[in-house]
Write a protein that binds this DNA or RNA. Structure first.
Lengths: 105, 105
DNA sequence: ACATCAATTCGATGATTAGCTAATTATCAA
DNA sequence: TTGATAATTAGCTAATCATCGAATTGATGT
């Protein structure tokens, strides 16, 4: 999990993940979105792969990267969960707000 | 938001935040949980403060650090939201609880 | 076989980071 | 005022990191 947060600490890598959200993309197509050299992008891909946030599949001359959403999800929700953080507006359970059980109302 | 993810990239700092989840704590008490020097911990606190993840309040000789949960929440949920990731488990919002009428229970 | 293209690895460089000890600041008590 | 305590700042080192150009690997087409 540490490798995931390390991977997420760089804005370029976070943006790569967001690009991959729409679907798999080749290393070259991904690199075209950034103002850094291809070797630099390749290093970023390696970090993301090491963190298991993406999977790489070779397709002819290209390498297709695919987002591993469940890994990202587990890391984010796992950490957020340790703080009682819940998504989509439901920040608190009934119990934690009212300290009242359903059976008592 | 970049500073938040930068801050979260270090395991010591993540653990500090988790310790602060229980409530505010002094720099010394926090440092006692780790096997690094106090100046090193002080540097970690500075990073967390810079990311606005904690607030510092001076109390006599001590400095009390307090978790700013909403900042952590906004960063985590904001990023997760961009991927359609949402936590599961919380069924009710605060509003739906506080707006419950007597006639409905 | 050779040229081309996509991607990575190699090797180097400047910047950032985490860590330390020692010194400094600030507060409180005797 | 002196001494003790809590925390930070100063100054440094070693390690990691993002970045580059050049070289290399691997696949495709002529």
């Amino acid at each position: 999990m540490n490798s995931v947060f390390k991977a997420l600490s760089d804005p370029t890598r976070r943006k790569v993940l967001e690009l991959l959200r729409k679907g798999p993309m080749s290393a070259g197509d991904l690199a075209a979105h950034f103002a850094v050299s291809k070797p630099t992008m390749s290093a970023h891909f390696a970090v993301l792969k090491e963190a298991d946030l993406v999977a790489a599949e070779k397709d002819g001359k290209s390498v297709i990267y695919r987002l591993k959403l469940s890994v990202l999800e587990d890391a984010l929700l796992g950490f957020a969960g340790a703080f009682g953080i819940q998504g989509k507006g439901a920040q608190e359970t009934i119990q934690s707000v009212t300290q009242t059980k359903e059976s008592e109302i």
